[in-house]
Design a binder for these strands. Sequence first.
DNA 1: TCAAAAGTGTTTCAGATACACCCATGT
DNA 2: ACATGGGTGTATCTGAAACACTTTTGA
Lengths: 244, 244
Amino acid sequence: MRQISQYLSVDCVLFGYNGSELEVLIVDRTLNDEKSGELVINDCTLTGNHVYEDEPIEEAANRVLFDLTGLDNVFLEQFKTFAHPNRLKRPNDQLWLKSTGRNPEARIITVGFYSLVATDKVKLQWKGRNVRWVPVSEVGELAFDHNLILEEALRTLQTRIKYEPITFELLPDKFTLTQLQNVYEAIWGIELDKRNFRKKVARMKYLIQLDEKQTGVAHKPARLYVFSRDVYDKTKKELFDFTI
Amino acid sequence: MRQISQYLSVDCVLFGYNGSELEVLIVDRTLNDEKSGELVINDCTLTGNHVYEDEPIEEAANRVLFDLTGLDNVFLEQFKTFAHPNRLKRPNDQLWLKSTGRNPEARIITVGFYSLVATDKVKLQWKGRNVRWVPVSEVGELAFDHNLILEEALRTLQTRIKYEPITFELLPDKFTLTQLQNVYEAIWGIELDKRNFRKKVARMKYLIQLDEKQTGVAHKPARLYVFSRDVYDKTKKELFDFTI
DNA sequence: TCAAAAGTGTTTCAGATACACCCATGT
DNA sequence: ACATGGGTGTATCTGAAACACTTTTGA
């Protein structure tokens, strides 16, 4: 029997992109009173989970994502650890811990990961709990310290996309330059100039133009591109070209 | 009696600059056999410590630094958490844990912080244990997973100084532009052009030229500068000018 | 034929790079 | 007087920013 760590968890901020907005995966947390059946907790959390005693945290985070999306090999990066002694001390959180058999007094520290997926690659599923995409701008108050975790994850993402080629993770394998531009715009919350953007990405050899075009769109169909990690790894010098 | 967490620690990678090289603070770890008195462990670690159950990790890290340097308000940033189940499983590490009254089977996770100080501000002192500055390039094999931690800290530092005004932390309050340039060169391990460097920093309004010069040097004395966080906070837009 | 997004070029300006000599001080 | 590091300017090139119209498709 595999032991669960009583002190360590992982939380995954799973970002997705729906074609216009940056979204994040949110789980409903509901608790009914044992006797009255009355709904005593009804709020939301990020996706997270326990870590097995013999399990590296990266594996635990991957496990959460796999359970959730069925996807393996998802982009995943540790960004910060949250360990404040009071992070689970709000009344609802204490109630929740008790009702799920945890010691509400224990200090549980959580390692935050963020992850990027193309929402259309994902069929959501999580052990009967209700899971859904919510635009980052519309996320309300979350349980635990999850608003803080989300905030830090977003800040990390905003910085990271300047220097690392990870925006592709939010798109289908084949994507248009407009989609790529939209991802940057959604993450930064600003608008970019189309011509300048295209001049910029034209320099990136690892963005490979295909002989394919969009179909089924009611306008001039756009060319499709793929990201080549191979080419990227061979031309790492251009890393900082990602500053846009 | 304040309880110590059995599962959580902090490690601080304390970087210093000695005028020519980037250094890191290293602690000797020695253990004598109880009976024979023979030296059974004689190696080095980074500086780290336990966390009290009711103590935020940032405070724990600050406490380590204060005990070590007598300095408060030192630059300190969490960079990564290390939690691999086998991270303390090498024979010497197991021996050490046993001999210091810890459970060698327990999984101890550690949150890594890095910190920057001007070595000449510091009088080292650490509970009788031998502590010293070692150039980063000359650090040998360290105990636990501390080589990995150091590596990640250095990588973080190299990236961070491109976008954040933190190099000043490694210098005396008043410094010369050559010293500043040397810090970048030491951290990146490359040489920079003096004239171009000066043109670049001349644009940074938060580098304030004093009406003071070096004294006691056997050459034309250099002008002294200070970093103004005030001005920096007011002109944050220029953040990315730090790319050098 | 219209609506909708794709795609494209020029000008101007700021900053990156490359590069070599004279200056002020202590010994 | 000499050794040492301080301090400066110019020319060239690359990339950032600002900006508007034509093209291709489906409805």
